[in-house]
Nucleic acid binder design. Structure first.
Lengths: 110, 110
DNA sequence: TTCATTTATCGTATTTTTACGATAAATATT
DNA sequence: AATATTTATCGTAAAAATACGATAAATGAA
């Protein structure tokens, strides 16, 4: 008696929602900022900056990775993460399109 | 031993995350689309279109409202909802700014 | 006033998310 | 080979999200 009807919505809607979900925690937004700033992106650096345990940060990184927003390569005992700019821009564009589309029919209502 | 460290992040990060969270379910994206299309936005119309129970839709509407994305006015026994374009555009702009800012320092890494 | 309609809210069950410590896995270093 | 360092994963607990039916609240119609 519960849980995910998500599949019953359109692919596009699911896709946008999944992206939004990846960005729906301040820690993950902060991680993206750090990744962009340092450009180089070793996991430990992120842990240092965030007010979270190492395991928690690792979990957030995993979610961003699964959402396709970042990728990580192993570098010795370290892990190097970076932003997947292509995916990022694609979804950014899709959101912009959604906004534009929504705004198109607007004409004030309630 | 659990739960929300969200306050420890910056206001901006929290704000963006909250917005993303509001958009993090396909049902809510679908609702926004319907609101924009019909422009007029009576709750019952949304319930008709979505594959969800009335109470569930009402709950999603409440979340969108609490996030500031839509507002609702009572109209007899009905409720009329519409998109808060100002808020919408403001956050849209903020996201665009975030994207731009992130992209700025990019130079390929891993 | 009584009845029908519409919508919000309550109660509740289930799933997912968030967080942590502990530990395993992988690789450098000594 | 032994040790230290870094990070992912496991186990787990608590909270939040998702969904529904039932019901209350508000208003329109009879």
């Amino acid at each position: 008696m519960a849980e995910h009807k998500k599949e019953e919505f359109s692919k596009k809607e699911q896709e946008l929602a999944a992206f939004a979900k990846a960005m729906s925690h301040p820690a993950r937004i902060a991680i993206l900022k750090v990744l962009a700033q340092r450009n180089a992106c070793i996991c430990g650096e992120i842990v240092e900056v965030l007010p979270l345990a190492q395991s928690t940060v690792s979990q957030h990184l995993k979610e961003l990775k699964e959402a396709g927003l970042i990728s990580g390569t192993v570098d010795g005992p370290r892990s190097c993460y970076c932003i997947n700019w292509k995916v990022f821009e694609k979804i950014n564009a899709e959101f912009a399109a959604l906004f534009a589309k929504l705004k198109l029919q607007n004409d004030m209502c309630c």
